[in-house]
């Protein structure tokens, strides 16, 4: 990897100052960013994703700013949950309250990568990890996302790529945690040069036609400090379908959060993961559940609605059935059926 200067930020303020381009570097920064979305300073927390990107010269910053000092706590707050961005995935997965009240989040954290990755990787890092698309990750392919002129997945190997979103870049969003966070109606607390603000998780991620070089609204000199969840619905669950049980990302996943009125669903939030460039919320499927008692037939109807607009690429039509199954099983799991 390219040599860089290391800054150990003692707190949020120092981190943001170190991530903000100086006046002189500003111009160069704007230029590079425009060309390839590459900021000159990047934050490092667990480092699991970043070091891989740097070793492969996908990201080559001049400065790496350690934000290990961010909040790592996981605690109930305002009737919901507040998770520090520096919390380790293993701690989130094992947290008793999270397992009980936010099972879709606990399941997602518990399924990430391997034990070592969950011990090292953080909540903020999982949300901000870069796409796993093999063309993006391969130094030899100057793909659209890296400032090139084409998405190689269109005519190439696309069995793990998006079935929603219409491109022009066909990544699937890599974060497993983002999916349940949106299903639970969560927010990201973001710190930047002008202080702190909360962003609805559902509006945080951006499609490639809005932001080709990044995946979210987060600016290079901003960091996620907390994930904040409101009280969950009475029933919720997540379900992932995987090719391998470890060392991998899901082929498709779904998180379901149900507000119940007795045995009837009052309102539902259903979000799919690994099917589109952003976590993919499916209001059509949510409407199917509203006012109904969950049965297998109802779950199948909702899952069918969820995949109604899917447009597979040459090699990934199989993902439609897999995503359908993930939605159906997540709904049945949430309902305890």
């Amino acid at each position: 990897m390219k040599a860089f200067a290391y800054v150990n930020a003692a707190n949020e303020k120092e981190a943001i100052a170190a991530l903000s381009p100086s006046a002189r570097a500003g111009q160069r920064d704007a230029l590079t960013a425009a060309r390839s979305g590459q900021p000159s300073s990047v934050p490092i927390s667990g480092g699991m994703d970043l070091l891989g990107l740097m070793k492969d010269y996908i990201v080559s910053p001049d400065r790496v700013v350690s934000i290990k000092g961010l909040d790592q706590s996981i605690a109930g707050a305002d009737g919901g949950l507040r998770v520090g961005a520096a919390a380790k995935l293993a701690d989130l997965a094992e947290h008793a309250q999270v397992r009980k009240l936010y099972p879709a989040l606990a399941t997602a954290a518990d399924s990430v990568g391997t034990p070592q990755i969950r011990n090292m990787g953080t909540v903020g890092g999982n949300i901000m990890q870069r796409p796993r698309c093999w063309y993006f990750r391969n130094e030899e392919f100057n793909c659209l996302k890296k400032g090139g002129s084409r998405c190689f997945a269109v005519e190439g190997e696309n069995q793990f790529h998006a079935i929603f979103g219409d491109g022009p870049c066909h990544i699937v969003h890599p974060s497993s945690l983002a999916v349940p966070v949106i299903a639970y109606g969560g927010r990201f607390r973001v710190a930047g040069p002008n202080g702190s603000r909360d962003i609805d998780a559902g509006e945080f991620f951006q499609m490639p036609n809005t932001n080709l070089y990044g995946e979210s609204v987060l600016q290079p000199n901003e960091i996620i400090t907390h994930v904040i969840l409101p009280a969950p619905g009475q029933r919720s669950a997540g379900y992932e379908v995987r090719f391998k049980q470890s060392h991998d990302w899901p082929l498709a996943m779904a998180s379901v959060n149900l507000v119940m009125s007795g045995p009837t669903v009052k309102s539902a939030r259903i979000v799919m993961g690994a099917v589109a460039p952003v976590p993919w919320r499916v209001p059509a499927a949510e409407r199917v559940l509203a006012g109904k008692t969950i049965t297998e037939a109802v779950a199948v109807e909702a899952a069918t609605a969820a995949l109604a607009g899917a447009k597979p690429m040459s090699g990934n039509a199989y993902k439609i059935q897999i995503a359908k199954t993930a939605v159906k099983r997540a709904i049945l799991k949430a309902a305890g059926a």
Binding site: Y6, N8, I44, G47, M48, L51, G52, S66, K68, A90, G113, T114, P115, Q116, I117, N119, M120, H247
Partner: peptide, 24 residues
């Protein structure tokens, strides 16, 4: 961080030492 041959124990937990900077 994909094979585990570099696994060490840090403060009681397993880590991939290839995916951590020495300074950290």
């Amino acid at each position: 961080g994909a094979c585990g041959a570099c696994t060490v124990i840090i403060d009681g937990r397993t880590y991939y030492s290839c995916s951590m900077l020495a300074v950290e």
